[in-house]
Design a protein around this nucleic acid. Structure first.
Lengths: 333, 333
DNA sequence: AAAACGAGTGTTACCGGTAACATTGTTCGC
DNA sequence: GCGAACAATGTTACCGGTAACACTCGTTTT
């Protein structure tokens, strides 16, 4: 394990070294690095050459110290075992990198205000320029805002993205209605998650738009386990006269659990009841039966979200959500 | 959105302010912050009070600039849609935070050397003190080592953790053997992933230990889709005389896809063939049938990994892997 | 009792960029 | 043809910690 460091002795070059080699001042080097206007093209290229020759790399700590901005975005994420948030984080990282920002991620139990607060403190300590909350809890958002004065806050799948969440949920319901379903139940996410609210609101709206009653729904914590736990109750409802003939579930994982639970009680999907998911988890095509679900333009949502915390003008809107029809939905029995 | 910043005007306090309020030098404040010995308890508490009173927070950029260390670990992650890596990242973040480090994550397509290199450069630019590669590609590891002289490198689920990966895979095979299976096939991960190698090696070893032939296996890219794609071939093999009666799959998601594909070709699991997974994905209990799989002590592995890059003495070893028996395995037909 | 030591603290300079301001030509309007 | 505006570059100081070293006392050591 001999750390034979090639740079030993020859400390990494800084702006001053580059400046000397290029025959300019260090400030000019800085200008080139930061793409300032008013640099003679020839000077610029001389500097660039020098940077390449010395394998120059900016020192972010120094830059951050001088500018009081770290070019880093903090992400507060919930449970890494849920598909939605995980995929969201990946998309955010890509979007941040696209605009030259770094990300620092802190995981927290979204349902526990203390944990979220700890994550926020952790990120603030890091000096992030903004914080993005993935799948935020309704209650924690105000707390966060209070905790982080001066640091812009945005939410993926919450704030501005909420309409599209609702639209996507509506898409699922419309699909069920088109198949002939008239009594459509909902299995929503935890009531106090903005994301859950948006999805459920979208489903309700679609029902109302079609003149259908929004029957009472169930609530789960996004996990497959929760879906399974609710299955017995769903089975009872389905077997009831005038019971639902379809369930719009707020994410794919709960749908998976629900279907598993229904199978255990001999309720056939989609024979006895149709089920839709939400997310288009890559696994959903291989559930049994393959799950009909809706998909958001995650990359687009992430870009919008990054632009928002950065205070950039809204770029192109994310693509509209898509319905992915598979085999968990059919005409009502 | 009136950003009524309470700290406007009253710029955030630094060590010097704290020092003045506590009646000591800034260096003493620094010593308190860093838990240096040789501080009179009374002095320490005076400083701590002053820090609290001023709501002092260290400026990491300044610290990094002075010490040439950022207390940040870089994580190079592959696909956010796979359960294993996602969960691994979450565990690493927690482990890093436990020892007062930050993490910076960069996602890369592990199969694309260029992409991994880009991620590494990104992290190096950030000035990370070490890099942890989640689920590394065998070939990219040397490249990375070359690219990052002086920056310690470790792998989650690769290097030192490999034995436990192998042990876990062996556990699955042993379970199948105990059920009476003698012809056990394998569906491995991509050949050049260290993790895939370790798991497959463990399975092979277990077979050899039992005096069983390691029949040829299949390979997939960890995704459910890959499992489904291979299903037809597996079905043919299973129906062959002397064909396998069980398949040990290298992760749960591929197992899911495989089972879905087998169902399509009327091969029953576990009736005609038993299937085991790897990871204990929280969804696996709700697959159809619920998946028998093995689980690693992810938090422990992450801690070990963080200690390794940090050059800390190895702490407690991760707990041994566990077998989780569910319904995808049964005695051979 | 002088010398050596260690605990506890202060001084100074430095890390590597960049903001702010100063300084040169150049070009342009009238 | 002269001052104004501007383009291109240099100077200087500063961001906020900490390393390195210096210094002052009590305690030991010999």
């Amino acid at each position: 394990m001999t750390t034979d460091e090639p740079s030993r002795g020859a400390a990494r070059a800084g702006v001053r070294e580059v400046a000397r080699l290029a025959g300019v001042s260090s400030q000019t080097v800085s200008r080139v690095i930061n793409d300032h206007p008013n640099i003679r093209p020839e000077t610029r290229s001389r500097v660039l050459e020098a940077m390449a020759a010395l394998d120059y790399r900016v020192n972010n700590a120094a830059r951050a110290l001088g500018t009081r901005t770290t070019r880093t975005l903090g992400i507060i994420a919930s449970d890494a075992t849920l598909y939605g948030p995980s995929a969201g984080i990946g998309a955010l990282e890509a979007a941040a990198r696209e605009v030259g920002r770094w990300v620092a991620t802190a995981y927290a139990d979204a349902a526990d205000a203390g944990s979220v607060e700890g994550a926020a403190r952790h990120l603030l300590g890091q000096g992030v320029d903004g914080i993005i909350v993935v799948a935020p809890h309704a209650r924690t958002l105000p707390t966060l805002a209070e905790l982080t004065p001066g640091v812009p806050l945005a939410t993926l799948h919450g704030g501005l993205g909420a309409e599209r969440q609702a639209d996507a949920a509506a898409l699922a319901v419309e699909h069920l209605v088109a198949l002939g379903h008239r009594r459509i139940a909902r299995l929503a996410g935890p009531e106090d998650w903005l994301e859950a609210l948006a999805r459920d609101a979208g489903a309700s709206r679609a029902l109302a738009d079609r003149g259908l009653a929004a029957s009472a729904g169930w609530v789960g914590d996004w996990s497959a386990r929760a879906g399974a736990a609710i299955a017995a109750a769903v089975a009872v409802a389905v077997r009831t006269v005038d019971g639902p003939t379809a369930v719009a579930v707020a994410n794919d994982q709960m749908a998976l659990g629900l279907i598993a639970g229904l199978r255990a009680t001999d309720v056939a999907v989609p024979g006895d009841v149709s089920v839709t998911g939400f997310d288009d988890n890559p696994d959903a095509a291989f559930y049994s039966p393959p799950l009909t679900t809706v998909r958001l333009d995650l990359a687009g949502e992430a870009r919008r979200c990054v632009a928002e915390v950065l205070g950039h003008p809204a770029s192109a809107l994310p693509a509209p959500p898509e319905l992915v029809v598979r085999e968990s939905t059919a005409a009502p029995p």
